[in-house]
C-alpha cells in the first residue's frame, strides 16, 4: 500500500471570510510554523491539489465556485473548513446572503474551529485531513466507491432534481 501521507498539497479558497482566517492560513507557511516541513505546499491549482482549505462562509455568489473547485480536484481529496465561518457561517450566519458553512455545498471532512483559527490548529486540521486522505486512497485502490459521504449524494440528488 502506498503511503501518500507525506505530500499534501493544499489549495486555499477564501469564501466570504473577514480575512482573519486567511492571514492565519498564510501564517502556517511562514518560518515560525513552516508547514512545508510536512510536505505541505500551498498550490493555487485545483487539478493538482489534494486538500481544499476553505475559509469564510458560503454565500449565494461563491457557492457554485466552491462546488466547481471541488469537482475539479482529482480523487482522493479532502476538504478542511477553517474557522467558525467555514464550519457554520459563524458571526455572518444570519446575513441575508449567507447560506452557512462549507458543508452546505460540498462534503467537509475536517472542521477547524476558532475565530480566527490558530495556525497550530490549522496545521493540526491538515494533518487530520491527511489521515482521511490515506483512507480514501486505500479505498480507491481497492476499487471501492469514495462517495460514502451522505452529503455528497444528497447534493448530487438535489442537483438532479
Amino acid at each position: 500500500m502506498y503511503k501518500i501521507t507525506r505530500s499534501p498539497w493544499v489549495m486555499h479558497y477564501d469564501g466570504s471570510s473577514c480575512n482573519g482566517c486567511d492571514i492565519e492560513v498564510l501564517a502556517c507557511l511562514t518560518p515560525v510554523y513552516d508547514a512545508e516541513r510536512f510536505g505541505i505546499i500551498n498550490t493555487g491549482d485545483p487539478l493538482q491539489a489534494d486538500i481544499l482549505l476553505i475559509t469564510g462562509g458560503i454565500n449565494t455568489q461563491n457557492a457554485p465556485v466552491v462546488k466547481q473547485l471541488y469537482d475539479q480536484m482529482a480523487d482522493p481529496k479532502v476538504v478542511v473548513a477553517v474557522g467558525v465561518c467555514a464550519c457554520t457561517g459563524g458571526v455572518f450566519k444570519d446575513c441575508y446572503n449567507i447560506l452557512g458553512g462549507a458543508d452546505q455545498v460540498i462534503p467537509v471532512d475536517v472542521y477547524v474551529p476558532g475565530c480566527a483559527a490558530r495556525p497550530q490548529a490549522i496545521i493540526d486540521g491538515i494533518v487530520k485531513g491527511i489521515g482521511v486522505f490515506q483512507e480514501r486512497l486505500e479505498k480507491m485502490e481497492k476499487g471501492e466507491s469514495l462517495t460514502d459521504n451522505k452529503k455528497a449524494e444528497e447534493t448530487a440528488e438535489s442537483e438532479d432534481k
Partner: peptide, 18 residues
Amino acid sequence: GPPLLQPFYDLGKLLHKD
C-alpha cells in the same frame, strides 16, 4: 524545510492520484 526526499514523495503521490 521539507525532507530531502520530498520531491520523490510528491512524485509518488501525483502518480497515485486519479
